[in-house]
Amino acid sequence: MLVLGIESSCDETGVALVDAGAQPLPRLLSHALYSQIDMHQAYGGVVPELASRDHIRRVLPLTRETMKEAQRSLAEVDVVAYTRGPGLAGALLVGAGVACSLAAALGKPVMGVHHLEGHLLSPFLSADPPEFPFVALLVSGGHTQLMRVDGVGSYELLGETIDDAAGEAFDKSAKLMGLPYPGGPHLSKLAQQGDGAAFRLPRPLLHSGNLDFSFAGLKTAVLTQAKKLGDELEARKADLAASTQAAIVEVLVKKSLGAMAQTGLKRLVVAGGVGANALLRSQLNAACRQRGIRVHYPELHLCTDNGAMIAMAAGMRLQAGLVKLEVLQRGYTFDVKPRWSLSALQPELAAAP
């Protein structure tokens, strides 16, 4: 069973083809990805209207590229999956519209997929896939969450951010330091040249006794420190970047370990763009090794938004029997969910209405 997946939630257009009939897991046959980073750099952040228009330009050429790489034809596709939410409304509508139109033309069923479920299940695309159950640290864009995952579609929220997410803390702090878009990767690269102990920045909710996160106060502290440095900022920028990164990573590591202790589980999955951070991986690996915990990550090139994770999530739902093809074949009307809680996701909600 071939599943074509389309991702268009923000500033990456991704298309992938997965064989959901492969065992024990769906197998990625091919994927193609286009990033809009260069286009948005001039504006210092994502411009939603420009993002939507660029998705329109890219999605069909990427689909052709994906099918060519897999040496398959569109007629062989059994299900077309797309990101239904969360994300930018206009960008989501592009992917949904193309997916539903393509499925209608092919006479094949269509499936809406939760973007965060895609990230959550993306480590199953790696050479070292996890096994259920596990704790997941989701650190993607505006989302920072800890989830207990007992199986596909079985998610329990353990903790989440009450304001800024970790990715936002990276990006906003980088902007305060005058670093270019996208700020997070630039801050992490600059931090390699600095001293993470140079500035004692706050670790919000580090000792809160729960598994919630808060990074807005850290951003404010970075702004205050940058103003204090004044003309010295340029010379101390690497130290400030390293100190900011150290604060974010310490919170993520401690909360993740707290979730492992609370659940008693011995597998941790880290997914989302921040999951590519080298310091986070290093510290988590070391801490979990001491506690006999296995840590799983997506492949580095699949940490950011991509079509492979959407096709994989759809394929795993089909394999688990959470979605029936006959349920999907109810028509080609669609909606999108710019705000959509993963903890509220029910198996039937994966199907487009």
Score class of each variant (00 low, 15 high):
residue 311 A to C: 00
residue 133 P to A: 13
residue 174 A to N: 00
residue 205 L to S: 05
residue 41 Q to F: 08
residue 187 L to R: 08
residue 220 T to Q: 02
residue 250 E to P: 11
residue 49 E to W: 03
residue 325 L to N: 02
residue 7 E to H: 01
residue 229 L to G: 08
residue 52 S to I: 10
residue 224 T to W: 14
residue 322 L to R: 02
residue 295 V to L: 06
residue 315 G to W: 00
residue 197 A to T: 10
residue 110 V to R: 07
residue 346 Q to A: 13
residue 250 E to T: 15
residue 86 P to I: 10
residue 86 P to N: 15
residue 291 R to W: 02
residue 341 S to M: 10
residue 27 R to Q: 14
residue 9 S to I: 05
residue 39 M to N: 04
residue 239 D to H: 09
residue 141 G to T: 06
residue 21 G to V: 09
residue 234 E to Q: 03
residue 128 D to H: 15
residue 261 A to E: 12
residue 339 R to H: 11
residue 179 L to M: 02
residue 56 I to Y: 13
residue 221 A to T: 08
residue 164 D to C: 14
residue 314 A to Q: 04
residue 145 Q to Y: 05
residue 2 L to I: 03
residue 206 L to R: 11
residue 156 E to P: 05
residue 215 F to G: 13
residue 94 V to P: 00
residue 97 G to M: 06
residue 92 L to R: 07
residue 2 L to S: 05
residue 87 G to P: 09
residue 64 R to P: 13
residue 9 S to R: 10
residue 290 Q to L: 15
residue 307 G to F: 00
residue 338 P to L: 13
residue 76 E to L: 13
residue 100 C to V: 11
residue 243 S to Q: 03
residue 48 P to T: 10
residue 301 H to G: 03
residue 256 S to A: 10
residue 161 T to M: 13
residue 155 Y to N: 12
residue 270 V to A: 00
residue 100 C to G: 01
residue 292 G to I: 10
residue 282 S to Y: 13
residue 235 A to C: 10
residue 85 G to H: 09
residue 221 A to E: 11
residue 132 F to I: 05
residue 169 A to G: 06
residue 209 G to K: 08
residue 115 H to D: 09
residue 218 L to T: 13
residue 65 E to F: 14
residue 43 Y to A: 15
residue 68 K to Q: 15
residue 249 V to M: 06
residue 46 V to C: 07
residue 331 G to C: 12
residue 223 L to K: 15
residue 282 S to V: 02
residue 186 H to L: 04
residue 259 A to R: 01
residue 227 K to V: 15
residue 288 C to Q: 10
residue 280 L to S: 11
residue 97 G to R: 05
residue 220 T to S: 11
residue 109 P to A: 03
residue 270 V to N: 01
residue 236 R to D: 02
residue 77 V to G: 06
residue 178 G to R: 00
residue 76 E to W: 13
residue 121 L to W: 00
residue 162 I to C: 06
residue 33 L to T: 07
residue 202 P to F: 12
residue 19 D to M: 04
residue 11 D to F: 03
residue 6 I to W: 01
residue 42 A to W: 07
residue 24 P to S: 11
residue 216 A to G: 09
residue 153 G to M: 07
residue 316 M to D: 01
residue 50 L to G: 09
residue 26 P to H: 09
